[in-house]
């Protein structure tokens, strides 16, 4: 099996209609390029999982690709609401979507349980919180040693996880730095994992405790410089804060949303992202 491939082939091979997929990233390293490729390939009826669905899930929901959203915070970070997702939840445009809502602690625990091969996650949570009344996947169990009642949620086991990372070596071992979020757990919880990286290098040049994903834990690795834009890759280019603010306006109505998607996603290619981050690159 070829680990290195084009982003087109990685998405075509690893994301099918009806899949449960996670495109993870916690403000940092959001896999925009991979999500845009999925949009171009027109995948449908997806169940999308993410702690913090931001612009990419707003775009996928707005393009009608999503049947169900599993999340813990559905906002545009630092800006406000996600208008396409709101429109789908409040008005069913362009289609109705199901939602399964959790807290961050629950999802972080559920990914970790998935990566650990466990059926569920157990933690102290949801005490007095309203979500357990509207989400039947939030249950409880009693500690057999102390009798304490603890929260339980099913583990997260995506069919496929997509993440973006700093670099891979020539074997396909991947390094993630900075705010590492939930990406390692999301990769190890999934049946298949696709990683886009800024750069392929001879040597990862890292230290003993770095966050490294061995090549044999991954399905595909694609070199896509700028692949996180308008999110950022720590130490390589900054977050495009203006783009997040701009999204609030673009996504405000159907026409401007669809026009933006055509120009910037449907008629674009992964290679276009490198130019979008050129002015954001860190000066060495």
């Amino acid at each position: 099996m070829t680990l290195f491939c084009s982003l087109h082939d990685a998405v075509a091979d690893n994301l099918k209609d009806g899949d449960t997929a996670a495109f993870e990233g916690f403000t940092h390293l959001i896999p925009h390029a991979a999500a845009h490729e999925a949009i171009r390939q027109g995948r449908k009826d997806l169940t999308l999982i993410r702690m913090t669905p931001d612009l990419i899930y707003d775009q996928m929901v707005g393009m009608g690709m999503v049947e169900k959203l599993i999340f813990s915070y559905v906002g545009n970070p630092g800006v406000g609401l996600l208008r396409r997702t709101r429109d789908a939840i409040e008005n069913g445009w362009p289609r109705t979507i199901k939602i399964e809502e959790h807290s961050h602690a629950a999802m972080a625990n559920a990914y970790e349980a998935g990566a650990s091969g466990l059926p569920c996650a157990v933690f102290r949570g949801y005490l007095g919180a309203g979500l357990k009344d509207v989400n039947s996947n939030i249950r409880s169990l009693t500690c057999p040693f102390t009798g304490e009642e603890l929260a339980a949620v099913p583990s997260i086991r995506p069919d496929v996880t997509f993440i973006h990372a700093h670099r891979a070596d020539r074997k396909g071992n991947v390094l993630i730095e900075g705010i590492i979020g939930i990406q390692k757990e999301a990769v190890l919880a999934a049946n298949r994992a696709v990683v886009t990286v800024e750069q392929i290098v001879d040597d990862l040049d890292t230290h003993a405790n770095a966050c490294v994903l061995p090549h044999w834990s991954l399905s595909a690795v694609c070199e896509v410089p700028g692949g996180a834009h308008p999110s950022y890759t720590h130490g390589i280019y900054d977050r495009d804060n203006a783009a997040y603010l701009e999204w609030d306006k673009i996504s405000a109505d159907h026409d401007s949303f669809l026009a933006w998607m055509k120009t910037n996603v449907l008629d674009a290619s992964p290679e276009d992202l490198e130019a979008r981050v050129s002015r954001l690159r860190k000066v060495k």
């Binding site: 913090t52 999340f71 813990s72 915070y73 559905v74 906002g75 406000g80 609401l81 996600l82 997702t85 709101r86 939840i89 409040e90 809502e101 807290s103 961050h104 602690a105 933690f123 102290r124 949570g125 949801y126 005490l127 007095g128 919180a129 309203g130 979500l131 509207v134």
Partner: peptide, 26 residues
């Protein structure tokens, strides 16, 4: 910080809790 109105048919869908439910209890 979750919804204005009924949860299943919200007037306004807000971003939701994120870390807040467990920050509030732990």
């Amino acid at each position: 910080t979750t919804v204005i109105g009924d949860y299943h048919k919200p007037t306004t869908r807000l971003p939701g809790g994120g870390g807040a439910p467990e920050i509030a209890s732990s």
